[in-house]
Amino acid sequence: MVQIQEEEVPVLRITDLSKNYGGLQVLTGIDLEIQHGELHALIGSNGAGKTTLFDIICGFIKPSRGSVQFMGQEVTSLPAFKYAHLGIGRTFQITTLFRTITVLDNLRLSLEALATTRLPFLKSGSFSERNLEPIIGLLDAWGLWKTRNVPVAALPYGVQRQLEIVMALIQKPRLLLLDEPMAGLEAGNRASMTKLIKESSRETTIFFIEHDMNVALQLADRVTVLHQGKRIAQGSSEEVQSNREVQRIYFGF
């Protein structure tokens, strides 16, 4: 196998990606590249195809045309569960944590997912001290340690959203997809979420959907703007802000 130089190949390269349901064109000819270590935002109004694009990147939906390459490897036709093994983690727009079980067990599920063992039904699902360590570290860092034995359903919404990201982070993904991490958060929580995203972006490449143009421009290194299934702009915050079409659609100039 040829060792790929991580820095040279873009983490994610999407070429000429289209998706249609019957006659309904959801995405048209999307090209996108995300470089190593980037904090990349995806902006677009309702129905722009943001979540569909995410679903394609992590394999839930197969595109009608075009390809997705992850670390230089063609992944378009892989089954969805393989994506996490390659290093693509994601969160969902609507929190889908496992509500009846505790925070710690949620994280355990996440950690165990990537353990490759034969005869998994012979392996106990409970923790050994060895694999507990990364969890302790992360929970401490995110200030969630004291909630470890609480069933997720009992946690406040803001904490649940944070936990979702922790669940994805614990797998040490090389690309983390966040679907509207700020959605439904109040001002205080938004600030801490912003901080958390900034901090985690030092360790991994992050691609996130944001509804609010200002938040996205302020937070991200680079921004992609979708409109009605087409990519209308891409670049740094300044470039996107000065883009004619973006101005026309978002700022009403």
């Binding site: 839930f60 569960f81 996490a84 944590l97 599920l109 165990e112 997912a113 998994p120 039904f121 699902g125």
Partner: peptide, 28 residues
Amino acid sequence: FFVKSRIGIALVGIRESEKRMTSLGYNV
């Protein structure tokens, strides 16, 4: 044993959310 094994725990996870289990990397 089965319930407490990795498969058992994965099964409970699938009951709660199949989509998330897939995205975590479980072969649902």
